[in-house]
Amino acid sequence: MSDEREPLIRVEHVSFGYTMNDKRTLPVLRDISFEVRRGEYLAIIGHNGSGKSTLAKHLNGLLVPQQGNVWVAGMNTKDKGLRKEIRKCVGMVFQHPDNQIVATIVEDDVAFGLENIGVPADEMRQRVDEALQMVGMFAFRHRPPHHLSGGQKQRIAISGILAMRPACIVLDEATSMLDSYGRQDILRVMRALHQQGMTIVTVTHHMSEVVEADRVIVMEAGRIVMEGTPRDVFQQQERLHELQLDIPDASRISQAVHRVVPAFSGTLIRTDEVVEEVENMHLRTLEVHGG
């Protein structure tokens, strides 16, 4: 129904505000435009109150723009008749693991979305099993969710989305309540899904997650203020500092070493890159001396 080269999600001049009393509105998003390409891994960062969560809720029509339009695979989110189609296409995982699980047994919860879109029972069974296997929670299918850890609950939430076979998953600060182990779990799942072609949008303030993305959008006061690859964005340490955002330690180390030894790359952002660069430096000197 839509052109494959067409971006999956197109956000056009979107403005949005929450209505306070006396018709006063509190502007949250101001004239935002960007695209999410098919198969892309996009991170949206910004400190609390920058509007990033509100923006995320526009991507599957949970909120609709007051001005401008959001198009999902060619469908306008303002069209009420298309809402189900849009949400089948763009799934969303939220911050609190506890507050998005509906059922009292894991597999029932995964089936919840499928029941809503009227999938026949036999197909449902198969899709639920598949989705649970994708997040590595198949063995837990008969368990009540309240005995699971936060990371496991979030994997259940993701699998509930996967069962609906969406083109894109939006993670709205989905790791912020998890411990490091749980966070690693989720990142591993997302990485695997991305490799299988899933489009991923993650809203986060963990810089270690941003490193995984193809592209970063930085928000401040309802506007997009920076955009680029994580490598480019993390180069601008001072600008990020002004925006009250951090950079990963690996990036900080890379830049500090680069200042002393210019041959050492200053644009590294991941720990393994730093280790590799040390090795490469040794290899390079060996070549120079050996040859």
Binding site: D249, A256, V257, V260, V261, F264, V278, H282, R284, T285
Partner: peptide, 18 residues
């Protein structure tokens, strides 16, 4: 600490690279 780590890395980089 970041500064210490930087020092550690600097200490093992080949002298010729500097």
């Amino acid at each position: 600490e970041v500064q210490e780590t930087v020092q550690e890395i600097l200490s093992i980089l080949p002298a010729a690279g500097r």
